[in-house]
Protein backbone atom coordinates (compact mmCIF):
# COMPACT_ATOMS: atom_id res chain seq x y z
CA UNK A 1 0.00 0.00 0.00
CA UNK A 2 1.34 3.40 -0.96
CA UNK A 3 2.32 5.71 1.87
CA UNK A 4 0.81 8.58 -0.11
CA UNK A 5 -2.69 7.48 0.88
CA UNK A 6 -3.98 7.17 4.42
CA UNK A 7 -5.07 3.69 5.48
CA UNK A 8 -8.76 3.26 4.56
CA UNK A 9 -9.34 -0.05 6.33
CA UNK A 10 -8.78 -2.29 3.35
CA UNK A 11 -6.67 -5.25 4.36
CA UNK A 12 -3.90 -6.80 2.30
CA UNK A 13 -5.68 -10.06 1.44
CA UNK A 14 -8.69 -8.22 0.02
CA UNK A 15 -7.13 -8.07 -3.45
CA UNK A 16 -10.06 -7.71 -5.85
CA UNK A 17 -9.45 -4.96 -8.39
CA UNK A 18 -5.88 -4.14 -7.34
CA UNK A 19 -3.19 -3.76 -9.96
CA UNK A 20 -1.03 -6.84 -10.51
CA UNK A 21 1.13 -8.39 -13.18
CA UNK A 22 0.23 -11.05 -15.74
CA UNK A 23 -1.09 -14.42 -14.63
CA UNK A 24 1.62 -17.05 -14.88
CA UNK A 25 -0.02 -20.46 -15.26
CA UNK A 26 2.21 -22.16 -12.67
CA UNK A 27 1.23 -25.40 -10.96
CA UNK A 28 2.98 -28.23 -9.18
CA UNK A 29 2.29 -31.65 -7.75
CA UNK A 30 1.83 -31.43 -4.01
CA UNK A 31 4.51 -32.81 -1.71
CA UNK A 32 3.65 -35.28 1.04
CA UNK A 33 4.15 -32.70 3.77
CA UNK A 34 1.77 -30.33 1.94
CA UNK A 35 -0.86 -33.06 1.65
CA UNK A 36 -0.47 -33.72 5.36
CA UNK A 37 -1.04 -30.05 6.17
CA UNK A 38 -4.15 -30.10 4.01
CA UNK A 39 -5.40 -33.26 5.70
CA UNK A 40 -4.80 -31.85 9.19
CA UNK A 41 -6.73 -28.71 8.29
CA UNK A 42 -9.70 -30.71 7.01
CA UNK A 43 -9.71 -33.25 9.84
CA UNK A 44 -9.25 -30.84 12.73
CA UNK A 45 -11.84 -28.37 11.43
CA UNK A 46 -14.29 -31.23 10.72
CA UNK A 47 -13.79 -32.39 14.30
CA UNK A 48 -14.75 -28.92 15.48
CA UNK A 49 -11.42 -27.67 16.85
CA UNK A 50 -11.53 -24.58 14.66
CA UNK A 51 -13.44 -23.18 11.70
CA UNK A 52 -12.40 -22.35 8.16
CA UNK A 53 -12.95 -18.71 9.10
CA UNK A 54 -10.59 -19.17 12.03
CA UNK A 55 -7.99 -20.49 9.59
CA UNK A 56 -8.55 -17.54 7.23
CA UNK A 57 -8.38 -15.07 10.12
CA UNK A 58 -4.98 -16.42 11.14
CA UNK A 59 -3.76 -16.29 7.53
CA UNK A 60 -4.95 -12.71 7.15
CA UNK A 61 -3.40 -11.65 10.45
CA UNK A 62 -0.02 -13.06 9.33
CA UNK A 63 0.14 -10.12 6.96
CA UNK A 64 1.18 -9.43 3.44
CA UNK A 65 4.83 -10.08 4.13
CA UNK A 66 4.07 -13.72 4.94
CA UNK A 67 2.01 -14.05 1.74
CA UNK A 68 4.96 -12.85 -0.31
CA UNK A 69 7.63 -14.81 1.56
CA UNK A 70 6.12 -18.18 2.32
CA UNK A 71 4.43 -20.82 0.22
CA UNK A 72 0.75 -21.65 0.50
CA UNK A 73 1.09 -24.69 2.77
CA UNK A 74 3.80 -23.01 4.83
CA UNK A 75 1.23 -20.35 5.65
CA UNK A 76 -1.43 -23.01 6.19
CA UNK A 77 0.55 -24.99 8.77
CA UNK A 78 1.25 -21.74 10.61
CA UNK A 79 -2.49 -20.93 10.60
CA UNK A 80 -3.53 -24.47 11.57
CA UNK A 81 -1.04 -24.36 14.44
CA UNK A 82 -2.25 -20.92 15.56
CA UNK A 83 -5.83 -22.22 15.77
CA UNK A 84 -4.85 -25.42 17.56
CA UNK A 85 -2.85 -23.45 20.13
CA UNK A 86 -5.87 -21.19 20.63
CA UNK A 87 -8.09 -24.27 21.00
CA UNK A 88 -5.75 -25.52 23.72
CA UNK A 89 -4.96 -28.87 22.09
CA UNK A 90 -1.29 -28.52 23.00
CA UNK A 91 0.97 -25.80 24.35
CA UNK A 92 3.75 -23.78 22.74
CA UNK A 93 6.17 -25.50 25.10
CA UNK A 94 5.09 -28.91 23.81
CA UNK A 95 5.34 -27.70 20.23
CA UNK A 96 8.79 -26.22 20.73
CA UNK A 97 10.12 -29.35 22.36
CA UNK A 98 8.61 -31.59 19.67
CA UNK A 99 10.10 -29.47 16.89
CA UNK A 100 13.52 -29.57 18.55
CA UNK A 101 13.28 -33.33 18.95
CA UNK A 102 12.14 -33.87 15.33
CA UNK A 103 15.09 -31.80 14.13
CA UNK A 104 17.54 -34.18 15.80
CA UNK A 105 16.27 -37.12 13.72
CA UNK A 106 17.99 -36.06 10.51
CA UNK A 107 18.69 -33.39 7.95
CA UNK A 108 15.77 -34.01 5.60
CA UNK A 109 12.00 -34.01 5.90
CA UNK A 110 11.94 -37.72 5.20
CA UNK A 111 14.36 -38.48 8.04
CA UNK A 112 12.76 -36.08 10.51
CA UNK A 113 9.26 -37.34 9.69
CA UNK A 114 10.42 -40.96 9.67
CA UNK A 115 8.74 -41.36 6.30
Amino acid sequence: MSEKFPFDGRRWHDMGGQDAGPVTPAEHDFALWEKRVDALQVLMSTKGHFTVDGLRRALEDMGEDAYEKYSYYERWIAAVNQNLIEAGLYTLEELGEKMDEARTRGETYGEAARG
Binding site: G9, R11, D14, G16, G17, E60
Partner: peptide, 13 residues
Protein backbone atom coordinates in the same frame (compact mmCIF):
# COMPACT_ATOMS: atom_id res chain seq x y z
CA UNK B 1 -18.26 0.33 6.71
CA UNK B 2 -14.65 -0.76 7.14
CA UNK B 3 -14.32 -2.51 10.49
CA UNK B 4 -10.99 -4.21 11.16
CA UNK B 5 -10.81 -7.99 11.22
CA UNK B 6 -12.16 -10.97 9.34
CA UNK B 7 -15.07 -10.06 7.07
CA UNK B 8 -16.14 -11.59 3.74
CA UNK B 9 -17.53 -8.51 1.99
CA UNK B 10 -14.78 -7.52 -0.46
CA UNK B 11 -13.67 -3.89 -0.32
CA UNK B 12 -14.14 -3.40 -4.07
CA UNK B 13 -17.90 -3.99 -3.66
Amino acid sequence: MMPPGHVRAPAYL
